[in-house]
Nucleic acid binder design. Sequence first.
DNA 1: CAGTATACTTTCTAAAAGGTAAGTACCTTA
DNA 2: TAAGGTACTTACCTTTTAGAAAGTATACTG
Lengths: 119, 119
Amino acid sequence: MPDFMYDGKVYYNPVEFAMDRIGGTWKIPILWRVKDQVYRYSELKRAIPHISDKMLTSQLRELQNDGFIHREVYAVVPPKTEYSITEKGKLAIPLVTAIRNFGIDLMEMEGVDVSHYGR
Amino acid sequence: MPDFMYDGKVYYNPVEFAMDRIGGTWKIPILWRVKDQVYRYSELKRAIPHISDKMLTSQLRELQNDGFIHREVYAVVPPKTEYSITEKGKLAIPLVTAIRNFGIDLMEMEGVDVSHYGR
DNA sequence: CAGTATACTTTCTAAAAGGTAAGTACCTTA
DNA sequence: TAAGGTACTTACCTTTTAGAAAGTATACTG
């Protein structure tokens, strides 16, 4: 597997590249909400337990820069911003679903209660 | 999404749980070799560019503790240890493949040369 | 009895990721 | 003119992840 560069960073393989775009603690939870609904900033904040303003803003900005979500700012006061998934973002959803299902499978094997998670 | 505990750690969702088992820089590259061949420690080291002894050992141990790979030690000198995938480990391969394919898709969209990666 | 081969193990360090808390900007409304 | 509501931004700190380099154990071989 040859290394390659993108945006000033060296990657060893495609998995690393993929995980650099949608990995981390918060990007998938964000995509998971936005996949079937438009959300305002404050709605995302409420919908995603434990997330801080700093992380919500930075991860939204990265997802936007990578083209996975769209940011619509309204010129009103108090401010209003809406986030929605893009066509490119929709391409990630089957994978997110697969990771989630795999996680549920593993949890089940370890005896973790999994009855809350729809399948 | 309710939080849950496993092995002394709090998780927010199944994706986090899954990524805690097979995520990080080195676990997937290891699984990717071992999926269709038995490897000795030194063979893995040679097969996975850039990996350090410390990371190779620690990630092998974690994958073993989580039941994804099997470790067979031979009582010879110099030492010989063989690593192979388990049935549980095989369950992860379709997901690993999916992540890899998604990464290749993204790279292609960004104009990264992708011709080396079999599909 | 020094050298070799293999599979680790340990220590120290650097970089990345993420948390907390406080602050900013803006216009409207009382 | 002060307060309120929303969407950030910034500074500082802690934790996690990974890298580099050196060391350990063992038995065979010349």
